[in-house]
Amino acid sequence: MSVNVLEKELPPQSEAVFQEKSTVVSVRNLSVSFKKQPVFNDISFDIFQGEVVAILGSNGAGKSTLLKSLVKLVDVNQGSIECLTHSVTGLRNKKLRKFRSQIGFVFQKHQLVPRLTALSNVLHGSLASSGFKSWFHWMAPSPQRIKALQALDSVGLKSKALQSADSLSGGQSQRVAIARTLMQNPSIIFADEPAASLDPKAGNEIMELLTRLCRSRQTTTLFVTHNLEHALQYADRVLGIKNGELLIDESVSALTVDELKELF
């Protein structure tokens, strides 16, 4: 299986598609280690505008660390990350916050603020741009509240707007987290195993919702999963990681289930 997207011959159809689109994420020779133990080593790939890409691998393969390193939640040891014209590894303080405000991040365990309403949690999506006006729903100006309600409506939870986040089910909480991300109007969405903590039915619904919303808004999306079906069903391209190395970088149409099973 090919390793580096730069050295790899892309299928004719994908090449045509990618040539038209600009690169929004460019990772070169990226290495991360914790306590001198390498998590992944010398990884390079590009993500193009409007793509939905899956990072696939087994538990502990380094998928989530890779995703977190793209928004500088994890420090990298070596290599470069260019994302939306920012050199991510060199960003600090205000510039880092500005960069992050353009990135939507959906976590495995939704990470909503308990005790606050779903609506307040969605409004937090605009904290970077609105500051204190987005602290709590009762402080937000009407246009912003309407936008947050529209985001909740788009994930089918408008009726739960004033319900406390800790009273929602796992699936509902993840929907609210997606609505919070939509509130940001992000240029890219990163999702770290968004369906992993949910039952299969709720997981499929979340993946369906996330990719449908991203495609309708033409938002570039990179999601981490260890679910082969999710990767094949919802992504355009798969980045396969095993033991900290990028083993697969291929469009979904060119991949077989057996090839993906080699990652596990």
């Binding site: 928004v71 939640l73 916050r97 500005k98 960069f99 992050r100 405000s101 353009q102 990135i103 939507g104 991040f105 976590f107 365990k109 990470q111 909503l112 603020v113 308990p114 005790r115 606050l116 307040s120 937090h124 999506g125 904290l127 970077a128 500051g131 204190f132 987005s134 602290w135 709590f136 987290a177 919070r180 991300t181 940001q184």
Partner: peptide, 25 residues
């Protein structure tokens, strides 16, 4: 620390995170 990290990831300032995330928790 999870919800705080989530708000940090979307670009919220430290004061915003304290008031609308850490104090409510």
């Amino acid at each position: 620390p999870g919800p705080n990290q989530a708000l940090q990831t979307l670009g919220a300032k430290p004061l915003d995170r304290i008031i609308c995330c850490q104090i409510p928790m």
